[in-house]
């Protein structure tokens, strides 16, 4: 039986490597056909912002990789509303991540779900394994 895996992202990209190496685990983990979710809270929400440009810092911009997650059947991406608001951000500041639902004639659906802290607490409670980054 598939386990519920939650990837918990709490750190901003580039300043440290955690965000990038978390994404690498997600991509490899997708092949294991478990029930995968990602959560972005605290500075983790900065990972998903639009308009990242790393030309001036000599590092690879890995933000486009998030838009490939849908192709890996990773389509439950929870962003905590309070974390976004505390940072003066809205959903419009984040990339528009989508996936195609095979069961509904490949209809395009949103991957990101904005959830309140209370809703996220329930989602976390329901997980079997939490991977923290």
């Amino acid at each position: 039986m598939a386990k519920k895996f939650m990837y918990m992202n709490t750190k901003a990209p580039y300043g440290t490597i955690y965000a990038l190496e978390s994404l690498e685990v997600v991509l490899i983990g997708a092949a294991f056909e478990q029930d995968v979710s990602l959560a972005f809270i605290d500075d983790g929400v900065y990972q998903l912002t639009k308009g990242q440009n790393t030309d001036g810092i000599g590092m690879k911009n890995f933000s486009p990789t998030y838009s490939a997650l849908g192709d890996y059947d990773v389509n439950k991406i929870y962003v905590e509303k309070e974390s976004l608001e505390e940072r003066g951000l809205t959903l419009d500041d984040l990339q528009h991540l989508t996936w195609e639902d095979e069961d509904e004639d490949w209809a395009e659906k949103d991957s990101i779900k904005l959830v309140s802290r209370a809703e996220l607490a329930d989602i976390l409670d329901d997980q079997d394994v939490v991977l923290s980054f």
């Binding site: 955690y18 997980q127 079997d128 394994v129 939490v130 923290s132 980054f133």
Partner: peptide, 8 residues
């Protein structure tokens, strides 16, 4: 407990 959640 059923699981461990490390708050890193």
């Amino acid at each position: 407990h059923d699981k461990v959640h490390a708050w890193l």
